[in-house]
């Protein structure tokens, strides 16, 4: 019930209210999760505008599917499952339409706490890393981003991808090896970490 401050209510409680038509609850959920959902999708697509559109579609899908939300289901699992599927669909669509950007057009989101020389080095490494990530399967890429960029636990990733924790670990290990092999050949990951 909405007898307490709605901003303090759990995601699940708010979603249950949304399924009954409460738009205020939906607004709180969007505000609460938009940053993480947008970031996750942006890391998968590397295109701000596409990521913006896909993230919007994700929340609209959440709203339109509100009737099918199972009351006891964990909201974030449901949300991130929709988000990763939407990002994967968009990657496939972009590939089909051959609209995947060339590397030189990738948008960089490097923190500006480093000097120009370091920035350059980091950007170069990031470009190579993005290129290596793009070579992974969508599933591997999604899991790597959730684990290493967004800090999800293995169990959470397993719930989102609807598979066993062991499968997530095995997929992550294979992904790490693929990335390592690719970047190792270029001598990128051997470079000292810039602090």
């Amino acid at each position: 019930m909405m007898d307490q401050n709605p901003a303090l209510e759990s995601d699940e409680s708010l979603m249950t209210q949304v399924s009954k038509g409460n738009l205020n609850g939906f607004e709180i959920l969007v505000k609460r999760h938009q940053n993480k959902v947008y970031r996750l999708i942006l890391h998968m697509l590397h295109q701000e505008e596409e990521a913006w559109d896909v993230a919007q579609e994700v929340f609209l899908k959440i709203y339109n599917s509100r009737q099918s939300y199972a009351e006891n289901a964990k909201f974030t699992t449901w949300l991130y499952r929709i988000a990763t599927n939407a990002a994967i669909d968009r990657i496939r669509q972009l590939r089909r339409d051959q609209k995947v950007q060339g590397l030189e057009e990738h948008e960089e989101f490097v923190s500006e706490d480093h000097g120009p020389q370091d920035q350059l080095q980091i950007q170069e490494a990031r470009q190579q890393l993005e290129r290596a990530l793009a070579k992974l399967s969508e599933r591997q890429r999604g899991m790597v981003i959730m684990k290493y960029y967004e800090g999800f636990a293995v169990n959470e990733i397993a719930e989102v991808f609807d598979c066993a924790a062991g499968t997530v670990k095995a997929t992550l290990f294979q992904a790490v090896r693929n990335l390592r092999d690719h970047l190792g050949q270029l001598g990128i990951a051997d470079a000292e970490v810039i602090k």
Partner: peptide, 11 residues
């Protein structure tokens, strides 16, 4: 290294 690169990402 991967964790470090991810931490530098600032979208």
């Amino acid at each position: 290294w991967l964790n470090h690169m991810a931490s530098l990402s600032n979208p």
